[in-house]
Design a protein around this nucleic acid. Structure first.
Length: 450
DNA sequence: TGACGGGCCCGTCCCACACCATGGG
DNA sequence: AGCCCATGGTGTGGGACGGGCCCGT
């Protein structure tokens, strides 16, 4: 049942705005429960939020940008409205509390859990040894099958498996990047992307470091790397983003802004084919010009800033981190599929695959997330402030603003002959005058006829 | 009575646009 | 043969912005 399948595109766009407004109301009124009627609140407590859009189905995913709880059908419907809504990062809802975004999936219990529920369920019991997978965010309008490609367990979830709105698949494309956080194949037998049983390196990796040797210019070998083949970008292929710490100097905003044409290609074709481009080495073309230009200038700036801050860490990881940054443009936010045990690094884990120190500012600059404007949701891990990176970012913003201010939109003269004639034409108060009439400005002699 | 916040007004700055005659396309 | 339009410097209108003032709490 998909009662809103006939809703118009404008309905869906209006819904996005409505969700931002609703999210603001939620914040102002002090909690979700105040938004819902008593009956609804009761319902939400007992069986989870109902879909904010159709108000009928149980919500399955949470959209941060819209601050919306949606069933899968409405999720696709709403987020297929336009290119911007397709970029919204969504994730599964916690199957235990049904109110917060799922953070990991317990393989043993086959249940998706938010941080709190994960902590409550696995923190101090024998179940703490349960293998758990980090749950990826996604954007675009993936089908259940596509979701299963980023969440291997997705078909375990009946409501996803039974999703009935497949008719809209034509509108949808998933843009996953399967971003790796660089967990090394410690035991040498980690198969696929799932079976990592420890987290010692996770902490670092999630804040921008990488277990990949710095000197390596090739994708790190090993099974763990298999989760990022579409994302990895050799430094040589994206020098502006990867090569050195002087990222901002190489990052030419002018070029970016001058390539703002052809949005259709940017958001339509390029977006849906980002996966191909990654595979075919088109990463540079994506991030070097067109796709990055697709974002607004502040967004580009945010990307540059984040790229720089991450770039301080090492030369390889930025390729991934920048991709993760740019995924706000490419609509490709996915976490690596990791299997977690223990409690390590939990406090540093960031939702949606964005490092803690970068996510807030980036999203705010991009204007993409109403959640950020309204304050972090309670499940959002606290962001340890890195003063150095903040300074770098501030400097980058300043440089960008200076550059933008100094930018000259030089007029393209199509007819040089006309320009030559205009350059010698006499004027009165800037206006051309007839030949022989009095003038107050002669470009050739600066004399006046009166 | 002083402090504070919000609303209103005014001055300044900035930007976009119209205006003009002419001649090449 | 005739129409269209691009060309550049200046004036002008309107919006943005900030500071000051007033009023209510």
């Amino acid at each position: 049942m998909c009662h809103n399948s006939a809703s118009t595109s404008s309905d869906r766009e209006n819904f996005c705005f409505f969700r931002v407004y609703l999210g603001l109301l939620r914040l102002l009124l002090g909690g979700d429960s105040l938004i819902y009627s008593k009956g609804q609140e009761k319902k939400s407590v007992k069986m989870g939020y109902i879909c904010d859009f159709c108000g009928d189905q149980r919500s399955m995913v949470y959209c941060r940008s819209d601050a919306a709880y949606l069933c899968l059908s409405c999720d696709r419907n709403v987020h297929s409205a336009n290119a911007l809504s397709r970029r919204h990062s969504r994730t599964l809802l916690c199957e235990r509390c049904n109110s917060q975004p799922a953070f990991v999936r317990c393989v043993e219990e086959k249940i998706s859990l938010c941080q709190n529920c994960d902590w409550l369920g696995h923190g101090v019991s024998t179940s703490s040894t349960h293998k758990r997978q980090a749950i990826s965010c996604y954007s675009g309008c993936p089908s259940a099958a596509e979701l299963s490609s980023i969440w291997s367990f997705v078909l375990d979830i009946p409501s996803i498996r039974e999703s009935t709105c497949e008719q809209e698949l034509g509108l949808m494309s998933i843009n996953e990047n399967n971003k790796s956080v660089g967990v090394p194949p410690e035991n040498g037998n980690v198969s696929g992307s799932d079976q990592v049983t420890d987290l010692p390196s996770l902490d670092k990796s999630l804040v921008g470091t990488s277990s990949v040797p710095e000197s390596s210019s090739e994708p790190p070998a090993g099974p763990a790397n298999e989760c990022l083949p579409k994302l990895y970008c050799p430094a040589a292929k994206c020098p502006a983003l990867c090569e050195d710490d002087n990222l901002y100097d190489d990052f030419d905003m002018d070029e970016m802004d001058l390539n703002l044409e052809n949005y259709e290609e940017l958001f339509g074709v390029a977006l849906s084919h980002s996966e191909e481009l990654f595979e075919n080495g088109g990463f540079n073309s994506l991030f070097g010009t067109k796709d990055m230009s697709a974002g607004d200038s502040s967004c580009q700036d945010a990307i540059a800033a984040e790229g720089s801050s991450v770039g301080l860490v090492n030369a390889t990881q930025p390729a991934c981190s920048n991709a993760a940054s740019a995924d706000s443009i490419l609509s490709t936010k996915t976490e690596p599929i990791l299997c977690l045990t223990g409690r390590q690094a939990q406090s540093n884990l960031s939702f949606s695959g964005i490092t803690a120190e970068s996510s807030a500012a980036d999203y705010q600059d991009c204007g993409a997330s109403s959640m950020l404007l309204m304050g972090e949701p309670p499940w959002f891990a606290p962001c340890p402030e890195n003063s150095l990176q903040s300074a770098n970012r501030s400097n980058a913003v300043l440089r960008y603003k200076e550059k933008k201010k100094a930018r000259k939109f030089e007029k393209q003269v199509r007819y040089a002959s006309r320009k030559a004639r205009a350059d010698v034409r006499r004027r009165v108060k800037g206006r051309f005058v007839k030949a022989g009439d009095v003038y107050d400005y002669d470009p050739l002699s600066t004399t006046r006829s009166y």
